[in-house]
């Protein structure tokens, strides 16, 4: 099984469900190829009662539903994906600034204590 390059497990799950990977083609998630092949089979035998496009594409629909419920259930996923990357950049920049302020406070305390100690 090829491992995902994504370190966040939640995102990796989405990728595993939707993005086809040539190495792990056992569980194929290539929707369009599956669809056109299914259409081909329907075309060959349109009157078969068992061979409807619905049944042939049920695995696709199942995957899509799986992915949707995964996103809906994973708070981490939702939180991450509810902002655009641009919005995230801004949020992270702010968080970085906040961190710098905290670190300055800490450094000042350190300095003051050290100065006290020197007396």
């Amino acid at each position: 099984m090829a491992s995902s390059s994504l370190s966040n497990a939640s995102l990796a799950q989405i990728e595993a469900l939707l993005v086809p990977n040539a190495q792990s083609s056992g569980q194929s998630s290539e929707f369009i190829p599956q669809l056109y092949y299914a259409l081909h089979q329907v075309k060959k035998d349109p009157n078969s009662s068992v061979n409807s496009l619905e049944t042939a594409t049920s695995s696709i629909r199942h995957r899509l539903k799986q992915c949707k419920s995964h996103i809906a259930e994973s708070e981490e996923c939702r939180a991450l994906l509810s902002k655009t990357p641009e919005e995230w950049e801004a949020a992270l920049r702010q968080r970085q600034k906040d961190l710098a302020v905290k670190q300055q406070v800490f450094a000042r305390l350190e300095r003051q204590i050290r100065d006290l100690g020197d007396h």
Binding site: S25, S28, E30, P33, Y36, L39, K43
Partner: peptide, 26 residues
């Protein structure tokens, strides 16, 4: 059948699939 054929062509041209034995066979 004709419309299905056109549909298949449309989809195949768009995304024939990754290079796998299964896709080539299909």
């Amino acid at each position: 059948a004709e419309t299905l054929g056109q549909m298949i062509c449309l989809l195949q041209e768009y995304k024939p699939g990754l290079v796998t034995l299964e896709n080539i066979t299909r």
